[in-house]
Amino acid sequence: MGVELVEGRDLFVDEGKVFMRTTRKPKQVDVIYRRIDDAFLDPLTFQPDSMLGVPGLFDAYRAGNVTICNAPGTGIADDKAIYAYVPEIIEFYTGQKPILKNVPTWNCAREDDLAYVLDNLENIVVKEVHGSGGYGMLIGPTASKKQIADFRKVLEANPSNYTAQPTLALSACPTHVASGVAPRHVDLRPFVLIGDRVRITPGGLTRVALKKGSLVVNSSQGGGTKDTWVLED
């Protein structure tokens, strides 16, 4: 795609603009798709000991000389509790009902939702609101009685830390494993770009759970990826 994969040390800020250190002259950077947390972006603005960031980046951002994508602060959308509010958010901003339905989501901070979740632990998936990587979660249908009992205690101790959803039947896809080709569960992340119009990038991220029967596709837990082509948007 002609997009450079850079580290903080490949970039520098001069007179409020961001530049890339290349083998020739410094090249100005207009857009950064970042993969590091807000707190590490710029040691002059956030964590002063961050070695990952670019000193002065935030001033350049404030001056409108660089677009950071996703914008600082958008990490709030990673909080899984937000998901429960998505239909309301859509309605608030557009005045319309959402076209795609949400996966039903129970926010355990709400008393009724919590009661339902506690009654149905063996059927649903419960996740930490700020969790990622497939950690700190309960998959009710595959969990043992003990795991469910343990999780119940943790959930009751701090309900607002959790959301729950019904267990989704993930699709399966032929996958090369040690014994040959076998079905393994996958999920798909398409990348949707919204500007003057809505476009879907021709590639996407398909994650695959390599363990038999597993629904955990996260790479940090041994999940794999599959080459993905989006043929039409």
Partner: peptide, 8 residues
């Protein structure tokens, strides 16, 4: 090309 790429 990034300077770091040349270095690597």
């Amino acid at each position: 090309m990034l300077g770091r790429t040349a270095s690597s």
